[in-house]
C-alpha cells in the first residue's frame, strides 16, 4: 500500500529534480553574455513598439543603439528626454531634435468627380484616378491614418483627419500610411502652417476646392522675414526663418494658413 504511493512520488519527484538540476547547470554552461547597456536603454524607451525609429520594435532599436549602429535620437515617442538619457548611458552627446507636431495639411471642401464604390481604404481609392475628389491632392477621407494609429490619436472630421496632440506621439505611421502625403511634421512649439498641398495652378485649385491655396502670393508679400514662399503653386513656410508674427495668417484670402500649438 505504502509502496504504491511512494514509488510514483519518487519517480515524478525524481524527474522534476533531475530537470531542475539539469536546467540550472545548463543555465550556467550555456549562459549568453548580454550587453547590459541594451537592457538599460530598453528600460528607458517607452515600449510603444511603434517603429518610428525604423526598427521593428524597441528591443531591436535598443540593441542597435548600444552597438552604435543607430543614432540615439530616433525615438520619437520618447522625445528628447529619452535621447538625453541614452546619451548618458552610452557616455556620448546625443543631438536633440526640434519640437514638432503632426498635422494633416488639408481641410477639403470639394465635390466628387465620380462615384467610387471599391475597397474602402485611401490606398485603394487613390489607385482609381487619384481618388473621387475633384482635387487630386485632397484628403480621401477613408481614414487609413485612423486605422494605422496605435495611440487612437486621430479621428476624421469634415472629411479630414484631426490629430489630438495630447495622444499623438509623433511616431509618423500615419504619415507613411497617407497616399497623398498630407500628414507632415510642422516644426516648433506653436506657429502657423499651410493647410494645403495642391500643386495645381490657382485657377484649377479654386475651381476644385473652396479651401485650397490659390498661389496668390499675398502671404509672400506680407512676410517680413522671407520665410514663406509659393513654390509649385503652394505656399511653403521655412520654419528656420519664421518668427511666428502671423502676418501671413492675417492676409490669406482663403484662410488656409492655420495656427497650431503642440499643447492643443
Amino acid at each position: 500500500m505504502l509502496k504504491e504511493i511512494l514509488i510514483p512520488i519518487a519517480i515524478l519527484g525524481g524527474i522534476g529534480l533531475f530537470f531542475g538540476i539539469a536546467l540550472t547547470i545548463a543555465g550556467r554552461v550555456f549562459e549568453v553574455k548580454k550587453d547590459e547597456r541594451v537592457e538599460k536603454i530598453r528600460q528607458i524607451l517607452p515600449g510603444a513598439n511603434c517603429g518610428a525609429c525604423g526598427y521593428s520594435g524597441c528591443d531591436l532599436y535598443a540593441q542597435a543603439v548600444a552597438e552604435g549602429k543607430a543614432e540615439g535620437n530616433l525615438c520619437i515617442p520618447g522625445t528628447n528626454v529619452t535621447a538625453v538619457k541614452i546619451g548618458e548611458i552610452l557616455g556620448i552627446e546625443v543631438e536633440t531634435q526640434k519640437t514638432r507636431v503632426m498635422r494633416a495639411l488639408c481641410c477639403p471642401d470639394v465635390s466628387k468627380k465620380f462615384e467610387y464604390s471599391g475597397i474602402k481604404t485611401c490606398e485603394a481609392a487613390n489607385l482609381a484616378y487619384k481618388g473621387e475628389n475633384t482635387c487630386n491632392y485632397s484628403c480621401l477621407g477613408y481614414g487609413d491614418c485612423v486605422v494605422v494609429c496605435p495611440h487612437d490619436a486621430i479621428m476624421m472630421k469634415n472629411g479630414a483627419p484631426i490629430i489630438d496632440p495630447m495622444l499623438c506621439t509623433e511616431c509618423g505611421l500615419c504619415a507613411k500610411a497617407c497616399p497623398k502625403n498630407l500628414i507632415q511634421y510642422v516644426i516648433g512649439e506653436c506657429g502657423y502652417f499651410v493647410a494645403c498641398v495642391s500643386e495645381d495652378n490657382g485657377k484649377t485649385t479654386n475651381r476644385n476646392c473652396k479651401n485650397g491655396c490659390i498661389a496668390c502670393k499675398l502671404c509672400e508679400k506680407a512676410c517680413e522675414d522671407d520665410a514663406i514662399h509659393v513654390v509649385n503653386n503652394v505656399a511653403i513656410i521655412d520654419y528656420d526663418k519664421c518668427t511666428k508674427c502671423g502676418k501671413c495668417y492675417d492676409v490669406c484670402p482663403k484662410k488656409i494658413i492655420k495656427k497650431f500649438c503642440s499643447s492643443y
Binding site: 524527474i15 530537470f19 539539469a22 536546467l23 545548463a26 543555465g27 554552461v29 550555456f30 549562459e31 549568453v32
Partner: peptide
C-alpha cells in the same frame, strides 16, 4: 523541461 533545455542550448 526538455524544450527549455533545448532553448538554452540553441541560444548559445
Amino acid at each position: 523541461g526538455f524544450v527549455q533545455f533545448i532553448e538554452m542550448f540553441m541560444k548559445k
